[in-house]
Design a protein around this nucleic acid. Structure first.
Lengths: 106, 106
DNA sequence: AACAATTACCTCGACAATCTAGGCTTCGCG
DNA sequence: CGCGAAGCCTAGATTGTCGAGGTAATTGTT
């Protein structure tokens, strides 16, 4: 439930990782909580997204431990990832504003 | 050029038609102009979207004339379409707010 | 009259992102 | 010991969008 806006997942993941390294499961939790339960990232979407982003060089991973002491793959932003975050943030702002315009003024 | 947020096309079309009947080509133009060139709906996306929405009973069509006097298929909102517009508008507002939360507070 | 550009609609195939629905291992706790 | 939660993974189906084509009618231009 609680559908996710298509195409915004990368942006959200980048933004979360910009606050510090985190593992996949934790990223999903974080998005869920920060959105006050409004967004729910399915694992079947999240993990493939992480691989795509790693393949593009926006994030990198290493095995470590979660905050609960479990084995976990920790992702962190690369320099390219930080730059990509800014690009996608601007794209989002522009698109969201445009949609706002239409909803209000059409 | 000028990518469209995936999944928002229906909302935009419904919103434009809420201001009065219009033909497909005109809907695309209207979205383009109202968004101040920020959004560009490709015809390959628009027409299939119109058929989907008509099949779902949100809009209906009849052949008539465009404002330029050309033959055109005029679409208008149905009662279900108006209700769907409100639903999607709320979904959008909720999602956009949630994403704003994450971008600002993550 | 001939021609190009514009308006307007249509469709097919490719592609990308998401979801469903499974399955796996490890660990903590009662 | 057993169970549930934490955490990762993947295959398949679905869906939405786009690119690139095409057609027909009309308007404007030469």
């Amino acid at each position: 439930m609680a559908e996710l806006l298509s195409g915004t997942l990368d942006l959200l993941v980048l933004r979360v990782l910009n606050s510090g390294p985190l593992h996949g499961f934790g990223i999903g939790e974080r998005i869920h909580v920060l959105s006050r339960e409004a967004l729910d990232v399915e694992e079947g979407s999240l993990y493939p997204a992480l691989y795509r982003m790693e393949a593009k060089g926006w994030i990198e991973s290493e095995w470590g431990q979660s905050e609960r002491g479990r084995k976990a793959k920790l992702y962190s932003l690369t320099r390219d990832g930080r730059s990509q975050l800014e690009t996608e943030r601007e794209n989002w702002n522009r698109a969201a504003l445009a949609i706002r315009d239409i909803l209000d003024n059409a």
